[in-house]
């Protein structure tokens, strides 16, 4: 039951993009088409869960050695190496999946959502199972926001928009209205 509450709370109430402001770069950058944003969301989900598990184990090691202040340096290196490794393994094992996710993987290293969730898991002192559930529901929340947003942006191209707000500004304004809609979920958990 607690896990279900955790999932609902993370996907809707504390949505990673629209209320915690993590992963804004891909949210604005690759949300032009629904197809690409589905690919991006899948890649993020894959790496996010994997990175959370790996950094969870690394954190145990850091705590044991008493060098918890090295957290930022180690996490980012581990995530960067992990993304590279996933890319190489996917290329070898599943070329079909690689061609779908491949181009998004390098972008993910500097996606602050991945590092952010890894650090949040540490700050919230989760054990391994809730940590994995938390990471996966954050990825779901990211996908939900990104795919909804790209659907709106596809329609937006056909709309008649004033010159001044064309491009990035209208994207932010739409995101603001979307965030307002998500505020309606506040306090349900």
């Amino acid at each position: 039951m607690e896990l279900i509450l955790l999932i609902i709370g993370t996907v809707f109430v504390n949505n990673i993009v629209l209320s915690q402001f993590l992963g804004i770069c891909p949210f604005i950058g690759v949300s032009g088409r629904v197809n690409t944003s589905v690919g991006m969301s899948a890649a993020v989900a894959f790496v996010m869960v994997l990175a959370t598990i790996v950094t969870y184990i690394i954190q145990l090691l850091l705590d044991k050695l008493g060098i918890a202040f090295m957290q930022t340096v180690t996490y980012i290196l581990v995530i960067a190496a992990l993304v590279q490794m996933v890319e190489i393994i996917l290329k070898k094992v599943s070329p079909a999946l690689y061609s779908a996710l491949g181009i998004f993987l390098p972008l993910i290293t500097t996606n602050c959502a991945i590092l952010g969730v890894a650090i949040l898991v540490y700050q919230k002192e989760f054990t391994l199972l809730p940590a994995v559930v938390y990471a996966f529901s954050n990825a779901l929340g990211f996908g939900l926001a990104l795919i909804t947003f790209s659907g709106i942006r596809e329609q937006l191209e056909l709309a008649n928009i004033p010159n001044g707000v064309k491009g990035v500004p209208i994207a932010f304004i739409v995101a603001g209205i979307l965030a307002m809609a998500f505020m309606g979920f506040a306090n349900i958990v």
Binding site: S19, G164, I173, G176, A179
Partner: peptide
């Protein structure tokens, strides 16, 4: 309050960038 919370961040930044664009033009 909405401007301190999440939606205000997006809205304020969107309008601020639009304002900068207009000035630049």
């Amino acid at each position: 309050i909405a401007f301190v919370l999440a939606p205000g961040a997006f809205l304020a930044l969107g309008y601020l960038i639009a304002f900068m664009n207009i000035i630049k033009k």
